[in-house]
């Protein structure tokens, strides 16, 4: 789930930071620059782990700040394929589930990777009132709840869910985005819950008490 990534970066240090010890100033600047940002093919930056080396400090012509060459390690959130992660259900619609782990929300379980057989129960679309006009939700993504049909019973797919990572992708930043489209996600995690031990954790631990 978490990795260290070694990075070299040319860092201009603003004059306001020069009152601090150089290492502390650079650390703060790196945090401002990388923290909570997605770097393509590396993942989401969680924290600056350590600074390996600081070189340079030259003020280039026309520049109002010294530039340092810094080598440092970042803690990155980058799930690997087939990793098992516990997440919480954020929303579910006809396309599948969207999960969150608190610090990262772009986790999707497509409907094709839900336990089979299953069915989707649509909830009443809530009308949202904005600036005196009524607008209904997008019909293509109807909100509702998924159920796993097993042994003539239906089990709701809800609450805390254990899933397997199937793919991590880094889509290209779009030049233009349609108004109705959902916000751009620089990193997408796709998962599956179509295996034993996966899905809501209540499924697998609710039965043990009954057996006893």
């Amino acid at each position: 789930m978490f990795y260290l990534s070694k990075i070299e970066h040319e860092l201009p240090l603003p004059p306001s930071r020069l009152v601090l010890p150089i290492r502390e100033a650079i650390h703060m600047e790196l945090e401002k620059l990388f923290l909570d940002k997605v770097i393509a093919n590396l993942g989401l930056c969680i924290s600056v782990y350590d600074i390996r080396s600081i070189d340079g400090g030259f003020i280039f012509p026309g520049d109002g700040a010294p530039t340092y060459t810094v080598v440092f390690n970042l803690i990155m959130f980058r799930p690997f394929e087939k990793e098992i992660i516990t997440a919480r259900l954020l929303s579910s619609d006809a396309d599948g589930l969207r999960l969150t782990i608190g610090f990262y929300d772009d986790i999707y379980i497509p409907a094709s990777r839900l336990p089979d057989p299953n069915h989707f129960v649509e909830t009443e679309p809530k009308k949202r009132v904005s600036s005196g006009q009524e607008s209904t939700a997008n019909p293509s993504s109807k909100k509702g709840m998924w159920y796993w049909d097993y042994d003539e019973q239906e089990y709701p797919i809800t609450d805390v869910i254990k899933f397997r990572v199937t793919n991590v992708s880094y889509p290209q930043i779009p030049v233009e985005q349609p108004k109705e489209s959902k916000p751009f996600a620089p990193m997408l995690v796709s998962g599956a819950i179509d295996d034993d031990g996966l899905g809501p954790i209540s499924w697998w631990f609710g039965d043990e008490d009954e057996d006893e």
Partner: peptide, 21 residues
Amino acid sequence: LECNAGALTNFEVLDFLRAKG
């Protein structure tokens, strides 16, 4: 320089954050 300079367990990340305060 190095995309994967080593995997960290959840404990190591938690320990690092605790050490940070």
